[in-house]
Structures are given as C-alpha cells and as structure tokens.
Amino acid sequence: MTAQAERELETETETMTVREAVRQALREELERDEDVYLMGEDVGLFGGVLEVTSGLYDEFGAERVRDTPISEAGFMGAATGAAATGTRPVVELMFSDFAGVSMEQIMNQMAKMRYMFGGKAEMPVTVRTTEGGGMGAASQHSGTIHTWIAHFPGLKAVAPGTAASAKGLTKAAIRSNDPVFVFENKMIYEQEGAVPTDEEFTIPLGEAAVEREGEDVTVVATQRLVGESLQTAESLAETGVEAEVIDPRSLYPLDTETIVESVRKTGRLIVADESPLSYGTHAEIIARVQEEAFFSLDAPIQRVGTPDTHMPFSTPLEQEVLPDGDDVREAIERVT
C-alpha cells in the first residue's frame, strides 16, 4: 500500500483504547476471513488476558474463539501444524514469559518449517502476547522477550505503541503468510488514540512511523515508551529542544531507512525500549544506524531500557528498573 493510500484510509478515525483497537482488529479479521480463528488460554468466555478478546466469544462462538488447555507447547505446536495445513490461527500467549514453555514449537517448528522444507510450508500464524512491567506482576508475568523473537530467523515481530498501530499491525500480522508476533505492552491497554475505521487499514510490516518531527535529536521509542517519549518531547520543546520521535512499530523487519534518515537530520539518537540492555533491540537499532549513518552522528548514541535484571515485584523496586519518560529526558539532556 502506498503512503498516499494509507493516508486516505486514515482519514476517518474513531477514538479508542489500545485494547479496543486490538479487539477491533481481531473482530474485523474474524469477519473478513473464515479461516481465521483465535486460540489460547481463556480467550473465550473469560475474555482473554486483560480482557482483550472480551465479547468475541459471544460474537463468533466457541469454534472460532477457542479456549485451550493451559498447555503452551501443545497449542503453540497445534497452531504451527494448523497454519501449515490451511488455516490461520491467531494465538494468544497470555504473558510473553510463557514463551519459555512453548519455545520449542516457536524456534524449531514455526520459525524453521518454511525454510527447512524449501518453501513447501506456509506459516500464516499470529501470536499475540503481553509484555512489560508496571503492574506488580513480578518476574514471570512482566518480561519483555521481543528481542528473542526479533532475533530469531524466520519470525517477524511487531510492537505497537499507539492505538492506531495496535489495530493496523494486528491486522497486518493476521493477513501475513509469515509467523508474526504482536507484542502488546500491558500498561498501554487503556491508552487512547485516533484509530482509522476503514476495515482495509493495515500497517505494512517493516514501516516505522514518525510520531513527532523535530530537528535536534531522534528518539526511537517502542510500546509504552512511545507515548512517554512524546510527552517528554513536548516538555523539552519548551526548553528549545525539538525531538523527533519515531515508533518503529515493526521490530523485524525493521524500517532502517526512516530511522537513518532522521539521524542524518538530527545527528543524535536515543533508543528507548523496555527490554534488557545487553545484546538487545537497542543494540540492533544502533548497529544499523552506525552502519548507514556513522558520519552523521554528532554525539554518542544513548540507550534507555531495563537493566539486566528481572522485573521485581515491590513497587519501588519495579519503578527503579522500569524505563520511563524521565529516563528519555535524561538521555536527551546528556547529548544536547
């Protein structure tokens, strides 16, 4: 889809939360394609984790909104087999930490089948999962694993930061014939935004969005940190620093070009992503920028992320390790 077409589709919008945007995307895709169905723990009658799929069971019934046993390896494997044989499962993995239980299915089957079989298997499977700290859910329900998935060959990963991208990315993921993971930060489900109502609205995988234009510094932010970076940018504008905020939206493929173009303009880069700093998403974005725009850089690149700890339970501990808008502000101040 051309940028022009995307803009046209975006003309009519409705204000809704990220949660509603994901739900609307699921609803529209369930209506559009009979081969699409949802499966996961308590996605049906219960309404899904954090109520994202609430109501869809009543609308579409038990065949299309399928409650699974608590059996991540079983249903992730079944979704893989189903995707290879003509249907388009959309799996909900309650918390991304639970990928540990199903990683075999993800890394050795889902990611590798098409390649190992010389292209003889389709793999139109979508995995939606929640990530992030901030609600005192502690280490096994607050992790961010999108780096693993974006790192692993054969998988695509998206991570919406706005309601609009939540809808557009979810729909694009479901329509893709590749395995796509949608990483939903659980702290932004209540965040509102203008969401295009057109049922053909999708966001192509691998296209970043410039959420705010600025001349002085580029902030590449994901998920919850998109909104917090925008707020930081607004407050910094009062001090005369204009930050450009880019939501990559898609982690793999990654829209290197949009980021590089921005850095060429600003000469400064902050990468803000709620994930452990070592060997991470930050590093990948930074590596690509230095490959393509090393000589445009005017200051050391800054990273904002979680330290290499797990997510602690107690609020003061959790707040200590969670990155936020203030961390982004400090990072900007270090280089401007």
């Binding site: 079983g74 494997g77 079944a78 893989t80 087999g81 189903a82 044989t85 299915q105």
Partner: peptide, 10 residues
C-alpha cells in the same frame, strides 16, 4: 504429535 494435532485442527 503437535504437528499432527495442528493438522487435525485444520
């Protein structure tokens, strides 16, 4: 077996 269960699901 997971693969077969998936195919059977389809």
């Amino acid at each position: 077996p997971p693969m077969a269960t998936g195919a059977a699901l389809s």
